[in-house]
């Protein structure tokens, strides 16, 4: 691609329009130098999907197409800028629902072609992590980030904001996935994270001693062994005709997950001399996980951050924050970029 202007460097002001349409929010933002959010417009479709008990991809895609222009217009108006002021355009290209991703990504590609400006493809998971940098611009480096959701479980190291190194990932199920599967198996419902957490409140976390995966010196995670152990335990008890105490079981399972997550996290913090810790992703909302980690970080005198609630839900500002650092690295995408529903970090 040929660009009309020279690519800027970090001493100059860089204005980016970012788009996000990976699930059930159609969103656009204008970011100045990454973390300065000039506008952040989110149009949620949550109500449309409620009666179906989950997001219906075709309905979401139709809505994204309908909302994409109005949302972009509003983001530009609120920021007080024109298309011609933009230095680059960014969009989430995965992970997520392919039909929705394609709407935001195709819009961004068209803007890049029309204005002859760089196109930046952003990973949605990275977006949730960088949301923390918008909320806490003065966060100290180096930092370790634990990002955990239904789709991924990763431990990251940031020496500066400009990029991260993946220290470890799950070898099988994501932590959120394990919560969902066990919750369904125990008949506690969906989504599993909040359901297990609620059931565990009155339970004894030391009632059942479940195994913690030992992956040696690596910072990787594994939850499939734990999942099998919980299911076997339930089946054994039922065969013996014993009643299973759901509260104790939920608490013991939750404790095992939290142990695996926090022990890896704290080991990485020590090894890399981290100054701050960032929790990100849906599972980071688990109060027991936060409590366990914050106890250990206070002892070490470190700062712990989790994203503020308004940046926990999907939005475009977090995508624009990632895009800024990609811009500085000249990490631009070709117009042939397509959506990747299963994109990893």
């Amino acid at each position: 691609m040929q660009f009309t202007q020279k690519i800027k460097n970090e001493t100059e002001d860089i204005l980016i329009l970012a788009l996000e349409s990976s699930c059930d929010e159609t969103a656009a933002s204008v970011n100045l130098n990454g973390t300065e959010v000039l506008s952040n417009v989110v149009s949620s479709q949550v109500k449309l999907h409620q009666k179906f008990g989950g997001v219906v991809p075709e309905i979401a895609s139709r809505k994204h197409l309908e909302l994409i222009l109005p949302v972009i217009d509003q983001a530009l108006v609120e920021a007080g800028v024109e298309f011609s002021d933009l230095d680059a355009v960014a969009a989430t290209y995965g992970p997520g629902l392919v039909g929705g991703l394609l709407v935001g990504l195709t819009a961004a590609k068209t803007i890049a072609l029309a204005l002859k400006i760089p196109l930046i493809g952003v990973n949605h998971i990275a977006g949730h992590i960088y949301a923390n940098f918008i909320a806490n611009p003065d966060i100290e480096k180096p930092l370790i980030c634990l990002t955990v959701s239904g789709g991924h479980t990763d431990l990251l190291y940031f020496a500066s904001r400009r990029g991260y190194k993946i220290l470890g990932s799950t070898q099988d199920d994501a932590a959120g996935e394990a919560f969902d599967k066990i919750s369904r198996f125990m008949g506690l419902g969906y989504p599993g994270g909040p359901a297990i957490e609620k059931a565990a409140q009155s339970g004894d976390p030391s009632a059942v001693d479940f195994p913690r995966a030992d992956l040696g010196d690596s910072f990787n995670f594994s939850f499939s062994g734990l999942k099998t152990a919980v299911m076997n335990y339930i089946n054994n008890q039922q065969q013996k005709g014993n009643l299973v105490n759901k509260a104790d079981l939920a608490a013991s399972f939750q404790a095992a997950v939290i142990d695996s997550l926090s022990s890896n996290l704290m080991a990485a913090v020590k090894k890399y001399n981290a100054k701050s810790i960032v929790l990100s992703g849906g599972v980071a909302a688990n109060q027991q996980l936060r409590k366990s980690i914050s106890k250990q970080t206070t002892e070490l005198g470190l700062k712990l951050y989790y994203p503020p609630l308004d940046l926990c839900t999907d939005n475009a500002a977090m995508i624009g924050a990632v895009a800024y650092y990609q811009y500085l690295e000249k990490d631009f995408a070709e117009l042939s970029l397509s959506a990747d529903p299963a994109l990893k970090l």
Partner: peptide, 9 residues
């Protein structure tokens, strides 16, 4: 989507 953005710009 492509057409919407071209027409808008």
């Amino acid at each position: 989507t492509t057409v919407k953005l071209l027409a808008r710009i």
